[in-house]
Design a binder for these strands. Structure first.
Lengths: 138, 138
DNA sequence: TTCCTTTACTTGAGTCATTCAATAAAACGA
DNA sequence: TCGTTTTATTGAATGACTCAAGTAAAGGAA
């Protein structure tokens, strides 16, 4: 199934911008909005930053993209959704790496005491220094 | 040991603003900067917003306060540090509640595969609907 | 195909949390 | 008490993101 069908399936219109943005995020890893904007332009020419914001929100609300916001840095988007994986974030360079769920397949949704909350998601970020920044000294 | 000594111990000068801010955060739970500013004023009169930002950063860097930034809302500070607890955040009203570490005393610092990262902290946020918002029938 | 309605895109201005910069005022060791 | 260093004040700036109004494109209906 192509991306056009994926979009239609979630009730979104198929536009060049959305197809390009979807592709960009898939290729890119964990890109911020600015990077997505720049790379998307390389694919389809002119696209406004607002169009990128709009499309990312639509794609995110439709469940096609996941949005992460590590403390202190702008939002990032990734195409890997629905598998409840977590993230390693480098304190030095800010790079993000996926980590599979700590508990295997289970969705990590069980704090020992939920205090009455109806919990539907566990958002887990591991902070540390990435291999490259370790070797770079400091 | 009083707060003044606590401040001196971490190498910070003792000022009325810092003492009041520390007290405010202790009393407040998970307050954002604006709330801290407002409440601190009630304790000591005039304090500028920037002084609050500066003090919070200093206190945070000194390890006296913990900073959390749930997606989509301004930063919040809490006085409970060093025990690696986690947070429940309400999707509806944004309120934050503490949860003890899922793994008991252990610091939850073991993703199955760290990809070479030197991990020093696990930041875990559980998202859901708080009891009050559940009964309010959204 | 053409028309029409709905949805998306563009441009430009606005908001909010946070930071920067320069001056004034305290803290605290000498 | 003095002098240096750190902290506070005031005001301006930044950056990520949103809002709003008009234009363009998508896709169903005629």
């Amino acid at each position: 199934m192509g991306d056009a069908d994926v979009l239609r399936q979630v009730g979104l219109r198929v536009t060049a911008a959305r197809l390009a943005i979807l592709r960009t995020v898939r290729e890119g890893g964990h890109l911020d909005v600015d990077s997505i904007h720049r790379r998307t332009r390389e694919h389809v020419g002119q696209v406004s930053l607002q169009a990128v914001y709009d499309a990312l929100r639509a794609l995110h609300e439709a469940g096609l993209l996941r949005k992460i916001e590590p403390m202190g840095s702008p939002a990032r988007y990734e195409a890997r959704v629905g598998d409840n994986h977590h993230h390693l974030v480098c304190r030095t360079c800010g790079s993000v790496t996926d980590v599979d769920c700590v508990k295997g397949q289970a969705p990590c949704l069980d704090p020992t005491d939920t205090s009455g909350y109806l919990v539907d998601e566990a958002d887990i970020t591991f902070w540390g220094i990435c291999p490259r920044c370790q070797t770079k000294g400091n």
